[in-house]
Amino acid sequence: MVPGSYYTGLSAVLFAIGAVGVIVRRDPLVIFMSIEVMLNAANLALVAFGAQFGNAEGQVLVFFVMTVAAAEVAVGLAIIVAIFRLRRRLSVDDLSAMRW
């Protein structure tokens, strides 16, 4: 039987990798994929906690997170495509219009 802390430790590692990817990469699509890695790390921690405590509420929460992730990806990719249509290139460094 694998201890639950192994799962949460793995989820911490995946979350950190995803966070570094969000900061390091310049391609918005890869940044989105790194965000997916972070979301999945959080999901894994939720399922691991739910299994430790023996109820299914963690899994219900993961279900909601999956729904939100699907909506987020759809809207985010639509925004990326709209920006690409306007600028013909895709570097996040150019997109400082909303920065203060």
């Binding site: 911490a12 590692v13 979350f15 950190a16 966070a19 570094v20 900061i23 390091v24």
Partner: peptide, 17 residues
């Protein structure tokens, strides 16, 4: 991002442990 990522990893691992 590399040191900050390492810091984040350390922090989350500490929370988990």
């Amino acid at each position: 991002a590399i040191p900050f990522g390492a810091l984040l990893l350390l922090e989350v691992l500490l929370m988990v442990v």
